[in-house]
C-alpha cells in the first residue's frame, strides 16, 4: 500500500530543493543582479499543477521560509511575511487550473506579484505621494514578467508531460 500523502510531501520537499539548486546555478546574469533567480519558480509551479493547490501552497511557503533563512533581506515585520512565506506560498495558486499551465502560472505569478507589491507599497507609502503604487508595480514587474515568460515557455514546451501524475 502506498501512502499518497507521504509521497506528495516528499515530492514537494524535493521540488523545493530543485528550486534552490536552480537559484544557485546562475544561468542568467541580469544587470541589477541580486534576488533575480530566473527559472527557480518552475519547480513550485510544476508541483502545484501536479499535486494541487494545497500542496503547492505548502511547498511555496517552505521555499519562502528557507529563502529567508539562507539569505535574509529584512526591513519591516510586514515585509518579512509578505516577501517570504506569503509571496512564495501564493505561487501554489497555480494548482487551481490543474493541467492548464498558462492560466495556472499566470495566477500563481500574479499572486506572488500582489504580495511583493503590497510589501513595496507599505514600505514606500510613508514617503512618496501617489506614485508609490506605480513604483512598486514597475519594480516587481521588472523581474516577475521575465520570470513568468520563461516559466510558461519551459513548462508548456519542455515539462508538460511531467505535470501528469501518471508519468514517473
Amino acid at each position: 500500500m502506498r501512502d499518497e500523502k507521504l509521497r506528495i510531501l516528499v515530492e514537494g520537499a524535493l521540488m523545493v530543493a530543485v528550486a534552490f539548486a536552480l537559484s544557485f546555478v546562475k544561468v542568467f546574469h541580469l544587470p541589477q543582479g541580486g534576488s533575480v533567480t530566473l527559472g527557480s519558480m518552475i519547480p513550485i509551479l510544476l508541483f502545484s499543477a501536479r499535486r494541487g493547490t494545497g500542496a503547492g501552497i505548502m511547498a511555496g511557503t517552505v521555499y519562502g521560509i528557507l529563502q529567508f533563512i539562507v539569505e535574509p533581506y529584512f526591513v519591516h515585520p510586514a515585509q518579512l511575511i509578505l516577501d517570504y512565506p506569503l509571496a512564495f506560498g501564493l505561487l501554489g495558486l497555480a494548482g487551481l487550473f490543474g493541467e492548464d499551465i498558462l492560466k495556472g502560472t499566470l495566477l500563481g505569478v500574479f499572486g506572488r506579484f500582489v504580495s511583493h507589491f503590497i510589501s513595496g507599497v507599505i514600505f514606500f507609502a510613508e514617503y512618496a505621494e501617489g506614485n508609490v503604487y506605480a513604483y512598486s508595480a514597475a519594480y516587481q514587474a521588472s523581474y516577475l514578467v521575465p520570470e513568468f515568460i520563461i516559466s510558461v515557455l519551459v513548462l508548456r514546451v519542455g515539462l508538460y508531460n511531467l505535470v501528469k501524475k501518471s508519468n514517473i
Binding site: 516528499v10 520537499a13 524535493l14 523545493v16 530543493a17 539548486a21 511547498a59 517552505v62 521555499y63 521560509i65
Partner: peptide
C-alpha cells in the same frame, strides 16, 4: 519538508 529540502539541496 524543510528538513528534506535542506538535505537534498
Amino acid at each position: 519538508m524543510m528538513t528534506i529540502a535542506l538535505r537534498f539541496i
